[in-house]
Design a protein around this nucleic acid. Structure first.
Lengths: 195, 195
DNA sequence: TAAAATATAGACCGATCGTTCTATCTAGTC
DNA sequence: GACTAGATAGAACGATCGGTCTATATTTTA
């Protein structure tokens, strides 16, 4: 049996970390909100850092699942899905509980690259990038990795501008730009085939 | 006379905040590294938050000055300068003391948008964007605001990918992408003039 | 129903947090 | 040389931090 207390603890911590940050969220607040005894936390996790890691891993799983499912529900073609990414992005950003990207935030608070917390954040970004690469490859462009890297820059940039500078149009602008870049990649692709 | 103690305090705090983050940097560490008495800090600043604000304001001033000076030294034409932005970006990212963008990091730790600290971060991003808009306008494209917004996304995305995911090529990729977008904007511009 | 595992409340730990106070000392001004 | 403003070291404040311990209660499993 997988402990429901443990799950609930991770979910609660996730919410608080997302809202207020990692250092700013004390253990006391977490156990109080979770309605759980202090020792229950420490029986499931060696330390607060371990709880942070567990929360980030859950976040990674939930977010990527939601992202991919949303993208793939909105469109059936690879090209369409590349564009749908930015609709999902916009939906996320417009949500009430949007507090930026938890992994960017985690990296900000745990700057040392050797820190496992930073490593999990790094891994998350790489997994997102890999997913985009799958889509660009399926779209049949000749430079799938290049295009994926470009779209990744747009996504991360939009997250930052939406969160830090409260730019309401960040996702829309990113999408428009992505359309231009996709079109360029397809033109190159067509040219190559025509040779 | 402007207090040198105060200046030194701000510089020291700036360095520590950049390295280790805001919550993780205690007042004790700051005064110890600055070689200054505790009350000297509290005579110049009402609170740690005020010191954080002062540090961020100095960072904004120093960074923007360095950025604009570097860009304008490297090229004389508006178009060249738009591209030079990404060389400066790459130089910054490759530096030993690169710990991501302090303003993104500050936003991560002080998530509430009403917080003056978050507000300063927001202002910084807007000022950078305005500078890019000046360059795109001078470059004579028909969509200067649009292009500036696009380039801003690329810059912020590159910062994030370089810091979170340790992407060594983020600035280079951003530059290549920027070249494509600039070319598109110039083509549109030429087309418009030709009508 | 007995045994084993898990959760509970709450006291307690030492460390650190940001902040204040005091009393002494140093530097610059008249 | 007297006065003033600023800086000093260091004790002390209450609050909170992450983490441990214990003794009791609840649940799960056999």
């Amino acid at each position: 049996m997988v402990s429901r207390k443990r799950d609930h603890l991770v979910d609660t911590a996730l919410e608080l970390f997302n809202q207020d940050g990692f250092h700013a969220t004390g253990v006391d607040k977490i156990i109080e909100k979770a309605g759980v005894a202090r020792m229950t936390l420490y029986n499931h996790f060696k330390s607060k850092d371990e709880l942070i890691l567990a929360a980030l891993r859950r976040r990674d799983e939930k977010f990527r699942n939601w992202f991919m499912r949303t993208v793939e529900r909105q469109s059936n073609t690879p090209q369409g899905r590349l564009m749908s990414m930015f609709d999902a992005l916009g939906e996320w950003i417009a949500g009430d509980d949007f507090s930026g990207c938890m992994f960017i935030n985690a990296s900000a608070e745990f700057s040392c690259h050797d820190n496992p917390i930073h490593a999990v954040a790094c891994e998350h970004k790489i997994l997102i990038l890999k997913y985009i690469q799958e889509l660009t490859t399926a779209a049949g462009v000749t430079n799938p990795e290049e295009l994926a890297g470009e779209l990744m820059l747009l996504i991360e940039g939009a997250i930052v501008m939406a969160y830090v500078a409260r730019d309401q149009n960040a996702a829309t602008r990113a999408k428009k730009t992505a359309e231009k870049l996709l079109r360029l990649s397809l033109e190159v692709s067509r040219t190559d085939n025509g040779n």
